[in-house]
């Protein structure tokens, strides 16, 4: 009957507890998709807000990632007289790796922190307790619409960044390396496959759902007022960025083995 007073949790057990909670939030969210139709208005509102909010930074990510990849690989290729091959490398790199990873890391900072701060503030001001007392489950009411919005917005903005990056690369190839638009595009068309593109979007979908789960879990677990909200926000950005980098490798392997990307 008597439960022992829990010992002050050490870092490792806190980490496991947090991971367990995040995973449980993820599965609860998935199983709350049944109430999708009821929450359609919230889903649309968040998708709009996240999408529009993410456009400016996505454009910047696309432009500069495309430029830098083109410039650096171009220099190497130029020295062996193969500058036109940037038309192969840049679109592949953008679609498979740079587009999804760079965009989603930035969106984890932008939208993940926003979600964590929103839900964390609701937690510390007892709004979530109030919802629970009104028999309103915060998972379908608060988490699911934001989760779904992230799953829609991350791939869409990644696709946008891919195109912008390829375009920016084309301009750099022309102005810095003397590669004509024609040569660049021909190379791209010949070597870029559709699966290079959609495997990147698949990654973005996973990154978006991971960021949303981490952000919502951090928000729901927030304690101790404003300081706690700050901490939840910071944790969200750090944890989801690291997870994106780790998962990127795992997913890259998965896409290669199971979808034949790059095979």
């Amino acid at each position: 009957m008597l439960k022992p007073v829990p010992a002050p949790p050490d870092l490792l057990s806190r980490l496991f507890e947090g991971a367990g909670f995040t995973i449980s939030v993820f599965f609860q969210t998935i199983s709350s998709f049944g109430s999708l139709w009821r929450r359609r208005v919230e889903v649309v509102i968040h998708t709009q807000a996240f999408g529009i909010g993410g456009i400016p930074v996505t454009v910047l990510v696309g432009i500069f990632t495309g430029m830098v990849v083109t410039f650096q690989t171009g220099l190497a290729l130029y020295s062996i007289g193969q500058a036109a091959q940037v038309g192969v490398l840049v679109p592949l790199a953008m679609c498979r790796e740079m587009g999804p990873v760079m965009t989603c890391i930035i969106l984890a900072g932008l939208l993940g922190s926003r979600i964590a701060a929103e839900i964390g503030t609701m937690r510390v001001s007892e709004e979530i307790d109030a919802l629970e007392v009104m028999s309103i489950n915060p998972i379908p009411y608060l988490v699911m619409p934001r989760f779904l919005a992230m799953c829609i917005v991350c791939p869409l903005l990644t696709a946008y960044a891919d195109f912008i990056g390829i375009g920016a690369g084309m301009l750099v190839a022309k102005s810095q390396l003397g590669v004509s638009f024609q040569a660049y595009l021909n190379n791209a068309k010949e070597h870029l496959e559709f699966k290079d593109f959609y495997s990147g979007l698949l990654k973005a979908l996973v990154f978006g759902s991971v960021t949303a789960s981490v952000a919502c879990a951090q928000g729901l677990r927030t304690e101790k007022g404003a300081e706690g909200v700050g901490l939840a926000t910071m944790n969200t950005v750090v944890i989801s960025s690291v997870l994106i980098l780790v998962l990127d490798y795992v997913l890259g392997w998965f896409c290669n083995v199971f979808l034949g990307v790059g095979a």
Partner: peptide, 16 residues
Amino acid sequence: RMKFGFVWQNGALLNS
């Protein structure tokens, strides 16, 4: 909980 009403010390209204 459906049978309960709860008046919060700080209001606990949804600010959004």
